[in-house]
Design a protein around this nucleic acid. Structure first.
Length: 284
DNA sequence: GCATGCTATATGTTTACCTCA
DNA sequence: AATGAGGTAAACATATAGCAT
């Protein structure tokens, strides 16, 4: 609600696409120190192997969900379903009650009862309840192919939903608003995870490139030192790249074998120029 | 300005379900 | 056919930020 769009998972894509610096520090809306560093190498749609796997699974799946009989009434009244503001309120109360002195078991039971009654498609018999010892036991339902497709389409449009949209989508799909809410939470998490994987790969390639560059420069420096010690050969050497560096942009141009591609001393300037690392950037 | 409560979201964990060897 | 391992996704728990009062 309060977080701007730029703080969300999908905002990861800003960086290169908008010709900004490839590395962006996101100092908001994260809890772990490491997650504050978010790198956005590209904007891309993820079609990962797991997504393919997921789609294959869905293709093979039968729709195990039947429309919860109470959905319409619940969604329209917006009272019974433990979703959105309501579920948040309940969970908030649960937390404060846990932290407090009283047990709060009543609310917890209520929450679970509501959740289960609304998300168990075909309803739960008393025998099943007995089978689980009468304890609250979540029964998970796979969303149907169609439901997933609609959710995915909606997610492409906007990765968060306001309560109205949530209710409308839930009603359309025959799910509870809570289920839609959870689906979007999990979907954002998956998106972010995949973006992180892409970022890691990109950074790995950067490190490799810089290591290689460093080795080359060290070798060149060693050669220069050696030549300086033997003045007879000094005249035969090709000019060091640093002498031919453009003072304005720090690019090097000249006859050196290394200068066939422009070389900058600063990798960060290289990134700013958008040259050397372009080839490493993940593309969709 | 500070404390408190509420809400939405991020993140981590649990668990049901599925596939495959 | 049975079964155990491993993966995936739905559901849940908790932490946190932003806003209102």
């Amino acid at each position: 609600m309060m977080m701007g769009k730029e703080d969300l998972g999908l905002s990861l894509s800003l960086g290169f696409a908008q010709n900004h610096h490839p590395l962006q520090l996101n100092l908001k809306s994260t809890s772990s120190p490491l997650s504050n560093l978010q790198m956005f190498p590209s904007n891309q749609t993820f079609v990962s192997s797991s997504d393919n796997h997921q789609n294959q699974q869905f293709l093979r799946k039968i729709d195990v969900n039947s429309l919860p009989s109470t959905v319409d009434l619940e969604e329209e009244t917006g009272v019974s379903s433990p979703n959105s503001t309501i579920s948040s309120t309940v969970s908030g109360k649960r937390r404060s009650e846990r932290e407090g002195t009283s047990g709060g078991a009543g609310d917890h039971d209520l929450d679970i009862t509501l959740d289960r009654s609304s998300s168990r498609g075909s309803g739960t018999s008393d025998e099943e309840e007995e089978e689980y010892g009468g304890e609250a036991c979540r029964k998970k339902l796979r969303l149907s192919k169609d439901q997933s497709a609609v959710l995915e389409d909606t997610f492409k449009d906007h990765n968060t939903l306001n309560p109205k949209q949530k209710l409308a989508l839930a009603k359309k799909l025959g799910l509870t608003a809570r289920q839609v809410e959870v689906w979007f939470q999990n979907r954002r998490a998956r998106t972010k995870l995949k973006q992180t994987e892409v970022d890691c790969e990109y950074l790995k390639r950067c490190v490799e490139k810089l290591t290689e560059e460093n080795r080359r420069l060290e070798k060149e420096a060693a050669e220069l030192r050696a030549l300086k010690l033997s003045p007879r050969l000094y005249g035969q050497m090709s000019p060091p790249t640093t002498l031919l560096m453009c003072p304005s942009c720090e690019r090097v141009a000249g006859p050196s074998k290394y200068n066939q591609r422009s070389v900058s001393l600063s990798p960060w300037l290289q990134m700013a120029h958008g040259s050397t690392f372009d080839v490493m950037r993940p593309r969709s």
